[in-house]
Design a protein around this nucleic acid. Sequence first.
DNA 1: ACAGTATAGCAACATTTGTTGCTTTGTCAA
DNA 2: TTGACAAAGCAACAAATGTTGCTATACTGT
Lengths: 195, 195
Amino acid sequence: MLVTSFEEKLDPRVKRTRKLLTDAFEELVQEKSLHAITVQDIAERATVNRATFYAHFDDKYALMDHLVASSYRETVKNKLADACGFSHENLALLIEATCEFLSRYTSSCHPSDEKYRPLIETQIQAQIKGLLSRWLEEHTNENGPSNIDIEITSTVYSWAIFGAGMQWAQHSNGSTLEDYSADVVSLILDGAPVP
Amino acid sequence: MLVTSFEEKLDPRVKRTRKLLTDAFEELVQEKSLHAITVQDIAERATVNRATFYAHFDDKYALMDHLVASSYRETVKNKLADACGFSHENLALLIEATCEFLSRYTSSCHPSDEKYRPLIETQIQAQIKGLLSRWLEEHTNENGPSNIDIEITSTVYSWAIFGAGMQWAQHSNGSTLEDYSADVVSLILDGAPVP
DNA sequence: ACAGTATAGCAACATTTGTTGCTTTGTCAA
DNA sequence: TTGACAAAGCAACAAATGTTGCTATACTGT
């Protein structure tokens, strides 16, 4: 049910089954909307018994969630490489990565799936929060504890960044991504434009 | 399918059916988890044909969404009354309203429904954004256009506020709601604690 | 009051879902 | 190598879903 996120030593059978399932699913997603895809479809295409599907994922959304999560993780890892620390630059990079990812995801998403997107997307916010937490922890170690709780800060900022990404993905205005992320960073770090 | 949000003059039959459905649903929600509730249940309890349910809502989540949306609208209306304008005070009120609402909602929510919460909750962000937009528009009229797009500002802030509410609802720390909202407001308006 | 129209009820349908008990097969370690 | 164990296959299930074509009923404006 819970797909172990670390690639632990895994029974080769489950490895094989999961690969079959995810491969089949990725194929299907290219072909039709998530809404139109059934667990039947996936199992059939994967040549895996349907009951076995349920041994690995709760439903198709869980599978989608898993794929999106690891894909985003990958995107962030590439863009941020070793970047680690709470700074304008890193925030900008993180925002850009998020915008790019959500943009790609949105355009690969059939309109009929609109309704169920939050189900898959909100875990991205959780990842952002994790990242920010680590950055802030480190930052705190250097400069002494900040006056506002790290928990609150990372939560609020992660949602803000996630939201900025969603906004970009859905109505990317004329501006460049760099300008956009700069605006967002300044909005977040420097505060309100009209306080 | 789309439940008209304004109480337009509606065919009394439609009104009746919707009331029957929502009443039945509200009863059921008290009794078991959303996950465990079926469309069958709802239709049966409402003494409405199941096919008729589908003429009004896509699925049980759409119904839940509808109820949560109007409930939140109500909450905000009460708390903010005529408050209208982009200010520290109003932001604080909005945040408190959101925290209270999400807190109530969370505690009334069976743990087995965790997975599907984003489906219902994210439309709250949309409401917040609408509110902020109006506030900022008005503010702009007074003080000339701000340097950062209202669209971006309202989006980012609305997600930030929504996130703050979620955080409060799930791990309400020891502090009072007033302190919490003050922290969040200052985080949002005054910028990063460690810039 | 009535005719036209919109909505609800009803019954039936093919499908999908989620789960179960049991069997078979693959894996790992002693 | 073999024996214990974990995972996958299989078949069958009751139940829920989403949709359809048709009938009956309630509303609306003229």
